[in-house]
Simulated assay, not measured.
Amino acid sequence: MSRLNALRSRFVDAPDSLGAKARARRWQWFAQSFPDLESMSVIDLGGTASAWLRAPVRPAHVQIVNLEKPPADLPGWLRADVADACDLPERIAATRYDLVFSNAVIEHVGGHLRRRLFADAVHRLAPRHWVQTPYRYFPVEPHFLFPFFQYLPIAARTTLLRRWPLVHTPTSDREAARDIVMEVELLSITEMRHYFPSSEIRFERLGGLVKSVIAVRKR
């Protein structure tokens, strides 16, 4: 492992990393916000089975919606379907859940109109929700682990992505790198309040700075 890859592991991926500790705190906060979670049916928009299998919490049932194909062998309390969270199939859209959960997905769906569709799905599917997204104005862009990456021109971000070793999935292909760069659109607090006007907006902080924004509705 290179020194820079080891640095990424230390800060993000390793079990004792800053990222892992932040995720553990977020799970704890989530569980405290919904004390009846163990009896709830949850729909996770954009999540993964592996995340729930590692999670320290377990709802009665979790329905995952993701564009990627899920593992074939899942426990009975967990179901995963390939679908677009902004354009759900009727079978899922017509189901009523207790809680919508989404972690760092809304910034990937593609523009304001698609974010509006995503938020509409959140409001329609359940009376409660927990929707988290990285904050646009935190100094270090969390997907690429590069300071102020989100403010650079697309051409500069594309060049950096092809050379910066701390990204999660590096690529040397220019077109692929440009696609990855353009696919991430971090949100502001104002935007989250716009999409979730009846929600409590919470802030996850690091070093006193807002690191992520969470829209929470408990009832």
Rank of each mutant, 00 (worst) to 15 (best):
Ala215Asp: 01
Gly19Trp: 09
Val216Lys: 02
Val140Met: 10
Cys86Arg: 09
Asp81Asn: 13
Ala80Trp: 01
Val65Leu: 09
Pro89Leu: 03
Tyr137Val: 14
Arg124Met: 09
Leu125Pro: 01
Glu107Ser: 03
Ala176Met: 06
Leu78Asn: 00
Thr171Tyr: 07
Arg26Tyr: 08
Ala80Arg: 00
Leu78Tyr: 00
Ala51His: 01
Ile214Tyr: 04
Thr190Tyr: 08
Phe11Ala: 07
Pro153Cys: 03
Ile154Glu: 14
Leu74Met: 07
Ile189Thr: 08
Gln28Asn: 11
Ser198Lys: 13
Tyr137Ser: 04
Asp44Arg: 08
Ile154Ser: 10
Ala55Asp: 03
Val213Asp: 02
His123Glu: 03
Arg114His: 07
Gln28Trp: 07
Ala80Met: 06
Pro59Gln: 05
Ala93Gly: 09
Ala85Tyr: 13
Met40Gln: 05
Pro142Ala: 05
Pro139Val: 09
Leu166Ala: 08
Arg8Val: 02
Ser172Arg: 10
His129Trp: 14
Arg58Lys: 06
Arg219His: 09
Met40Glu: 14
Pro170Val: 05
Leu145Met: 04
Leu186Gln: 03
Leu37Gln: 05
Glu204Val: 08
His143Ser: 06
Thr190Asn: 11
Ala126Lys: 08
Thr169Ser: 13
Ala126Cys: 09
Trp164Arg: 09
Asp120Ile: 00
Leu166Met: 07
Arg91Cys: 11
Val131Trp: 07
Leu145Ser: 05
Gln63Leu: 14
Asp179Ser: 15
Pro134Glu: 00
Thr133Gly: 11
Ile189Val: 10
Trp130Glu: 00
Ala31Gln: 04
Thr133Gln: 10
Glu175Asp: 13
Gln63Cys: 06
Ala104Val: 03
Ala22Asp: 12
Asp179Ala: 15
Phe34Thr: 02
Arg91Gly: 04
Pro70Thr: 05
Phe34Val: 03
Glu107Thr: 00
Asn66Gly: 01
Ser102Gln: 04
Ser50Trp: 10
Pro147Ser: 06
Glu90Asp: 11
Thr133Ser: 12
Leu4Lys: 10
Ile106Gln: 06
Pro59Cys: 04
Leu88Glu: 02
Leu78His: 00
Phe34His: 05
Val131Leu: 06
Met182Asp: 13
Gly111Leu: 04
Leu152Gln: 09
Phe146Cys: 14
Arg115Glu: 10
Glu183Cys: 11
Asp81His: 15
Ala60His: 01
Pro35Met: 03
Tyr151Leu: 07
